[in-house]
Nucleic acid binder design. Sequence first.
RNA 1: GGGCGAAUAGCUCAGCUGGUCCAGAGCGCCUGCCUUACAAGCAGGAAGUCGGGGGUUCGAAUCCCUCUUCGCCCACCA
Length: 896
Amino acid sequence: MTQQGLAPKYDPSSIEAAVYRRWLDTDAFAASVDSDREPYVIVIPPPNVTSVLHMGHGLNNTVQDVLIRYQRMRGRETLWLPGTDHAGIATQNVVERMIAQDGKRRQDLGREAFVERVWEHVHQTGESIIEQLKALGCSCDWSRTRFTLDDAYSTAVRRVFVQLHDEGLIYRGHRVIHWCPRCLTSLSDEEAEFRDRDDYLYYITYPFVDGETTEDPTRSGVVVATTRPETMFGDVCLVFHPEDERFQGLEGRLVEIPLSGVEIPIDRSTAVEQDFGTGMLKVTPAHDANDFDIAASLPTDYETPDTMTPDAHMAQVPRVPESLRGVDRDEARKRIVEALEQEGLLEKVEPYRHAVRLCYRCHTVVEPRLSDQWFVRMRPLAERALAAYHAGHLRFVPERWGKVYENWLTEIRDWNISRQLWWGHRIPAWYCDACDHITVAFDEPTGCEQCGGALRQDEDVLDTWFSSWLWPFATMGWPDETADLARFYPGHTLVTGPDIIFFWVARMVMAGYHFVGERPFDTVYLNGIVRDPLHRAFSKSLGNGIDPLEVVERYGADALRFTIVAGAASGTDVVMDRNHMDSTFAAGRNFANKLWNAARLVLQNVTDEPEPIDRLDPAQFELADRWILSRCQRVVAETTDALERFRLNDAANHVYHFVWDELADWYLEQVKPRLYGHADGGNVARAILIDVFETALHLLHPIMPFISEELWAHLPGTPETVLAGCAWPSPDERLIDAEAERQFAVVQAVVTGVRTVRAEYRVPPGATLTATVAPATAEALQAINAEQVTIQRLGKLSELAVSDSAEGVGGHAVLPDGTSLLVPLGDAIDVAKECERLRDEMNRLDAQIGRVAKKLANDQFVSRAPAQVVEREREKERTWREQREALAAKLAALGC
RNA sequence: GGGCGAAUAGCUCAGCUGGUCCAGAGCGCCUGCCUUACAAGCAGGAAGUCGGGGGUUCGAAUCCCUCUUCGCCCACCA
């Protein structure tokens, strides 16, 4: 596979497609039900088929791919199950907008034709989404791609509905729900978002109609405060708190709803807050959920008059004054307020800030509406999900999100699952025209199960989340007992955004336990949100988003992935600026190019497969060799540890700094003379270089799969497989060489010191720079047989003389004309500062040791504290004493 | 009303169990370099009293209290 001549610049577009094809051709992502490997499963949060992917998906899916690729290399049987969500209301809205361009509404097409039109749309977007995921490098098992409206999936949905109904956990309820007057459907509590709004509180007088007045002669009625005067025609009574002394004796009195002449009584309810408004509350059961509950709690059997149409206009009913019928709710409010003012019934208006609820899809203000809907009784389902969390069977990363999950489940309310839409799973319930019986069945019944009468199916569809919550197992063939289900359920990690903890995460846990009897995953990793420089979430309407595909085209998938992973600690938001694309993605792009060029150097100088390093004679290793091998082992350990702990940004940065700062900046420079044949030991250098570089490619692969795969294929001696399927490296303890690390650090300090001097004092090229160093440094250099250290990067200024006869720190440069220039060496090896620092350190250590010693000398402590605790203290004392000795030695060496 | 989070270099952010990653990274900025892997680069450099104030400690960016400023989530005071 070895080829020569990589281009001097990395061009991702020239390799990515071919690399991805290689993965597919080798079935690298296919999950086997037969292998004996331990499984590792992630189910994708199915993107909505509303449209193509945005940067949030880029982030989410990159994280998943990093995890899945890492586990695959660790030898797990990995399944990343891909798919898409039909996204009921969202998709229907999108298509409605599309046909609106032709001046059509869905009603014009009719249900069947409209649904057909939606299918057309989702076939397109669904396909694009899959292609986008591939462009990002996602290693999903495409043979298992699912869609929430697949036939098999629909079977699961219907089965669940019927089961819950049989269990008494689904019921038909008559109550006030959130209604979007634009989408013309009901919404769940979660789908009605809160938004603070500056509004007004109107104080309206309801005049008495039974002749008497209050003690106050100026008042001939009671005043009620409301934010929604337009609902007043639906009032059925006024209530005050039974203990409110201001209104004693008013119970049973009749007042008139202004502008309408409808008479309603005054009643009492403990639900009233005496301190709010006037303490008198109007009760509108059909247009306010609380009012509905209050009315229901009163002894009187009040009516529930509906005075508004589904699209939020005043209804054509007697209660509504004729002049207002058919008027939009906002316009109606205006007119009502004006009219009240004219009649002297508007006592006052106060500015009032409060939260209104908006439709989460179209942001229209939601209208509370009394209707019949299907509900899921959630409490019984929630208990198991809550218990699992408390028992530690479910973990959140970062942990704090667990509280959000816990809180929602604790306060859980029944779930309205019916939607008055056309796009979605039709509810498997049939109404009988003859009797009132409702038949719920998995297969379409032939007649009413009660009376055999003719049936018509419920027109509504199910909430899109009612199918999503089954995703972890419905995608694997449930309710059938499939091989996939047996092998890959329960799964392991769920990667998603914190905004859908209620909508999706908690519900999946509930469904998993209830229907399959096991948790769907053990860890929930919450990624952040992608934001613009003003910290606004990306959104279509703001036009601030960045198309991930555009980034892939310009900088490559790896650059995008690296930027995302390195820039986003778990749960923190990622800021991207579409106006500064170059700098936003510079880190990833530059790094990919660096790697590419490091590979060029390697490949130009290593054409044959070198000896494995364990067959080399370690005696031939130079300091730099031992150093880079040791550092390599450490970075393997660090990267592994970071990935295990879901600290993806740490993993990315560890490899980054190893490759760039250590491998490229120091080791590659150090081996050049050997590679070029200017020095002996070329074979050793080549062997170690390949070994280390290959290891780096492995570590990089989960984060930057394309470039690592491509470069790996070019290395001499690479087997005919793909890197994606290779084993993750494990650190070789025998190669850890702390002494080499220490010595090389000294070399680096000296070299850097010399460079600093050269730069600061403008020592011209060709001059010899003699550095005079502190005794300790000289000692270190001598210990590595460095009477004279040659530093390649200094080029023409290559000589560094070391002397241990120095008084203090300094150096002198000999210019080409023979003149000598005395210069200091800088902070790197400043004896005075170092001494000060060490003494400080020493004092602290002494204090610590003193404290621990005192503790351990205390019999009470030693005898009563748990053995582990005492042992830990002893351990502390030992290590600190060791540190102290080392410090003392350093101080002595420095001569201070 | 309740809860959560954030405040560290010009910008975006790391900093896990208080003490060798203790002041960091990337981008930006300044100086000098086209040194045959890389100018998407190399070498060097400037830059932060870690939001303010208290406290605990031998020692605090890190723990506690408080204040200020932002952000998010939940919530039936109409």
